[in-house]
Simulated scan of single mutants.
Amino acid sequence: MGYRTYTCPIARECGGCEWLAVPYPIQLRRKQEQVEGLIAGMAEKDGAEVEPIAGMDDPVRYRHKAATPFAHARGGRVASGFYAAGTHRIVPCEECLVEDPRARRVLNGVARVAERLHVPPYDEDRGVGVLRHAVVRCGWKTDDVLLTLVTRVEELRDERRLVRELRAACPEVTSIVQNVNDRRTNAILGRRCRTLFGPGLMRDRLLGCDFEIGPTSFYQTNPEQTEVLYRLAIAGASGARRALDAYCGTGTIGICLASSEDDVEIVGVEQVRGAVASARRNATANGVDGRCHFVAADATDWMAREGAAERFDAVIMDPPRAGSTPEFLAGVAALGPERVVYVSCNVVTQARDLELLRGRGYRLVRVTPVDMFPHTKHVETVAILERR
């Protein structure tokens, strides 16, 4: 039986889709084996199941967020594209197989406008120049396109003309934001933002819920698979009367849960204050603000200080790639929820954390891999645990 394969003219130089030449069913099999290799032992002990991986029907054009660095090129040109694997040499890209088609058109349009207006790209060796990166977020269920220009300096020469030229070159853009990053760092975004055009954010829809996404908000890159991920998380917390959404970001999982179940109350905890403000607005926009309460705090500290006096039937956790901490997991166990829903973008750290939860009185019920990033080695997982 033959499998469809995908090709890209810059695949070897770019290196972003390291499994592009591997037939997609084989990619899924490898990811399934990776998860089973780390989880199957504890799953067998607990009588749990590692379910088949949830892949995509058509694994292309799934990335709705894209970015480019900028650099000087010959003849006064401004280079944009991807860094070649293991280097800071920019590989030009006209169209990317895995991105929303609007994204790369806008990013390359920014480079052409910078050339015409003589906006100097950032020189990372000398720490001079103006334009460092551009980041584009494209709506999945909406036509919104948010463009963020990352600059080294706050003041932009002839700012009105710059905005006018960008709008002409990129008519699909609905908001333009400037983000200032004046640090000598590899991090793309800085701490300060200001709106140059439009509302300064974009809106999108997941599982029938509306969300606002700002330039620094965490929002999953692949919204189609995000719905798969969230359905699994919601099923794991189904029936809970009160649920704690830790690492809640802009409230997406908790709000989707509250919208799907009329009698659940959500408490979301997130240490980024801007994200908490967005979460509250998102709850109001979806008519669940009476049942969703968001707190700006470190989740571990909050559980030790205030959460100890509260009762939760379920805890939903979606930590960063580094996973959670022993202190946080101890706090979860101290709350004593009937179920823990652990959403992870790194099954290695998740497996470590699951062992800690199992040692604190929980048993594994189900683990489901989700292919969020086809043609790469990355795999996401949703693990459901119950109190013994």
Rank of each mutant, 00 (worst) to 15 (best):
N286S: 06
I234P: 01
M202P: 09
E327H: 14
F82K: 14
E18M: 07
A283I: 14
A297S: 02
P223I: 06
L117P: 00
A279Y: 13
A237E: 04
D301F: 12
E99L: 00
A258T: 14
E95Y: 08
V177P: 01
Y122H: 05
Q350M: 15
Q34N: 15
R157P: 00
L364S: 02
A73V: 07
S344K: 10
D158C: 03
L257T: 10
E227Y: 07
T226E: 11
P69H: 13
A21I: 04
D371P: 13
L162N: 06
Y219R: 02
P326G: 09
D144E: 11
L196P: 03
W140P: 06
A240Y: 09
G268T: 10
T252E: 06
P171L: 10
A21T: 14
L156I: 11
G109L: 07
Q178S: 01
D100K: 01
T381Q: 13
D298R: 10
A187D: 05
E261G: 10
A103R: 09
H88R: 15
R161Q: 12
N108Y: 05
V267E: 02
R161L: 13
G359H: 03
D125K: 14
L149I: 15
E380H: 06
Y6I: 12
H88P: 03
W302Q: 09
D204Y: 06
R30K: 15
R161M: 11
I316H: 06
P101Y: 08
T174D: 13
A334V: 12
R360W: 12
R29S: 15
V91I: 14
R30Q: 11
S324P: 07
I53S: 05
M56E: 01
V228A: 10
I266A: 11
S80L: 04
R12M: 01
T68K: 01
L147C: 10
P59C: 02
F218D: 10
L335W: 00
E227I: 04
Y342W: 06
R161S: 03
G139F: 03
C170L: 06
T7V: 11
V113M: 06
Y24M: 10
E33S: 09
R89L: 12
A297W: 00
G274M: 01
D204I: 08
